[in-house]
Amino acid sequence: MIHYWRDYQKEIAEDEFFYVRSCIRQNFFPGAENLFIDILRNKLGKKVFEDADHTTCTGIGYHSDIVPIETTMTVIARQFALMKERGYRNLVISCVTSFGLYSEILDLWKHDPALKTKIEGYLSEATGRSFDEPANMVHASDILYKFRYEIAEQAVNRLVNNETGLPLRVVDHIGCHYAKTFPERGIGGSEFPQVLTGLIKAWGGETVDYPERRHCCGFGFRQYILQSSRGYSISHSRTKLESMMPYEPDLIVANCPGCAMFLDRWQYTLEETDGSVYGPGRTKIPVVTHEELAGLVLGYDPWEIGLQTHQVPVEGLLDKIGIRYDPEKKYADRQGKLIGDTVAVTAIV
């Protein structure tokens, strides 16, 4: 059976989601996941459950050859068990690495049922739990894609330049493990992925189709984990940024927490290293996640959803869209007390 990109569509559940968080996303984009849950519950009226007992999927350890695959499978089987115990069947995964890993494990079990039986034994032995495979398993960006028009109906802001009235030029970056291993599990497949393009178009922007669009962000677990190998990682990010530069993009949106982090943080590192900046007029290009993009469209306060934790300042983007914000409150905590400013974070070695 051969497909081409329009054939890659997937079933996305309507309601009743069991949500699993991402290690990287909750650390580097601390507002994003609460924002996602809030949009689902309060803007779209969906039922979302988050289990306090949920753990990492071990993705970083697994991809760095630290955690053996049987351990990873058992940990993931435990997440399935938590979902079963709470009476949910539709799994929503925040992290693209996790999504890829969950998909890979289900595929391995499908081809080797004895392996699944073995893991069932391990889980039962270690925790006394049992699990069912999810009825529907999607990435969080798939959910936003499914409800993109509902979000557009409630939109306070559109992805349009406030002054010129032209659509914002948005670079969409899809995490490699979203569709490259299993193109049929990604909307639009892996060559012409539609999952973020769909959001961008529905909310008024336009996608930039630049030559290195499919290039890995450079995350490459075992590359960035060792300081001496980080050069490989940043070199790939540079390839991408150089390729998108002539299009003068207004922002980058990524559905993978690692990609969003690297495309954001490495812009700072590249400027510090050799003075390169890639946005129009010697600015850096703001990077947001899919949840943050939805949050901006729906009119959330930028500082409430954590945009002050980004390395590349987002104020230029907010001004372009015409979003009001209080510069004084950028680094204020809930009591209004300043918790730091940009000057304090320049000495990173």
């Binding site: 190998s229 980080r230 070199s235 590192t269 290293t273 003075g275």
Partner: peptide
């Protein structure tokens, strides 16, 4: 180079 981060940026082949 302004700042040293302990790794180099490579040109590809």
């Amino acid at each position: 180079m302004k700042t040293k981060f302990g790794f180099d940026i490579h040109d590809n082949r």
